[in-house]
Amino acid sequence: MPEPIEKVSIVISKGSLEGVYPGLIMANGARMEGIDAMLFFTFFGLDAITKKRMNSLKVATVGNPAMHMPSIIGMLPGMSAFATSMMKKEMEKLDIPPVDEFIEMIHDSGGGIYACKAAMEMFHLKREDLCDPVDGILTVGEFYEKSAGAQIIFT
């Protein structure tokens, strides 16, 4: 029998709604199964833990063939907001929480929430710009140390 997974370390590097949620769902799902989980937010993924931005993430309607519409329509004003509100409604039906509540839920379940130091500097962000559940700001080296024994998943 293969060894069960005991720890996951999930990197969230994108800042679109569809770029952020899969990582959150996987981290929360890991905790639900008793698997240790940590989340590492880097580059545009930092939007998901930045107080000002975390609850206004948008679905990308341009350059996304799976939207099943021509990009030129996705470019029209309001299309991204429309797609976002549709998707949020569907998620609410499935009991998937808004980003701030989801991060808090993962944190309360014992999952670690970390920000990437290099990306923080790049975007001129400070600790106080990030939401309260963030456990710390890590260098890449520290990220690997904390991920010891984990499966690393990059999203």
Partner: peptide, 27 residues
């Protein structure tokens, strides 16, 4: 229920739920 509904409506918050049922509360 989902974990979210469970914690919202049973009056048992997430942290406590994981303490009560360690290593996988849902199952």
């Amino acid at each position: 229920p989902s974990i979210r509904r469970l914690t919202k409506e049973s009056g048992v918050p997430t942290k406590e739920l994981y303490q009560l049922f360690p290593k996988g509360p849902a199952k």
